[in-house]
């Protein structure tokens, strides 16, 4: 089986470099037209003026933050069940990028919220869930960082990721319910600007670009993790 050949760190290490290069190119192929459409084709929104142009990074970052968590939990679970080291390394490599996407979603959300609703932060259901997601990423990374033995860290963080992925929908719906109860503090976020098709196209291209970027950068990080972990195994120096 050709595919399984790549499931060992030793064989994956050179492959990851090629995958990273391909996906960086793809990220640019989607990102450059995405930004062009976002800034030079998409018209001014009649309600939000030019402020809405933050959408082209805000929504992709928010999508990726959630998607990466699920993918991370998937690879962590595969690593736990099948005892494959590379799967756990993939999970480990995805976590910082996921946390970064969550941070960017929150940051750009604040910069969008300030001009449109007049405040940097509201305890809206989506913003609050995104904040909790950031905590979950930080917990995953912190647990890994504090366990010396990498194999034990793989397994422990896998359990945490699985527990987290079960909890994410529960947290989201609880927060949503809590938010509808306290109407006073909430601002309706669901009123996205009536999307012109150019806006939608730009947003989708940027989402693809973020996706490709996440793959590429986590491949680079897998290489770094392999270098760190296999330092003493010899094959790296050849």
């Amino acid at each position: 089986m050709r595919f399984w050949k790549y499931s060992t760190p030793q064989n994956f290490y050179p492959a990851a470099k090629k995958i990273a290069a391909v996906f960086f190119v793809l990220a640019l192929c989607f990102g450059i037209p995405g930004l062009y459409i976002g800034f030079f084709v998409a018209p001014t929104d009649h309600q939000q003026g030019e402020a809405y142009r933050i959408i082209f990074i805000h929504v992709p970052a928010a999508w990726m933050s959630m998607f990466i968590y699920v993918v991370m939990a998937f690879w962590a679970a595969v690593g736990l069940i099948l005892n494959t080291r590379l799967s756990s390394m993939l999970a480990q490599a995805l976590a910082p990028t996921g946390a970064l996407m969550t941070f960017l979603a929150l940051w750009t959300g604040a910069f969008w919220g300030r001009p449109t609703w007049g405040t940097w932060w509201v305890w809206d259901a989506r913003l609050t869930s995104e904040l909790v997601l950031l905590f979950l990423y930080v917990g995953f990374i912190a647990l890994r960082a504090s366990i010396e033995d990498p194999r034990r860290a793989d397994k422990a963080s896998a359990i945490l990721a699985i527990v987290g992925v079960v909890n994410v929908p529960i947290i989201y719906f609880s927060v949503k319910w809590w938010n509808t109860l306290h109407q006073g503090a909430s601002v309706s976020l669901t009123k996205a600007p009536s999307m012109a098709s150019d806006m939608l196209l730009g947003m989708l291209l940027m989402a693809l670009s973020f996706w490709m970027y996440s793959i590429a950068v986590s491949m680079l990080r897998v290489r770094k993790i392999i270098r760190d972990r296999e330092r003493n195994s010899g094959w790296l120096n050849n």
Binding site: V132, F135, L136, V138, G139, A142, L143, S146, L160, V163, G164, N167, I170, I171, S174, V175, W177, W178
Partner: peptide
């Protein structure tokens, strides 16, 4: 570390 891992998961119960 326990606090960091566990407190976010307590939110639904708290709500």
């Amino acid at each position: 570390l326990t606090a960091l891992l566990i407190l976010p998961l307590y939110i639904p119960v708290l709500i």
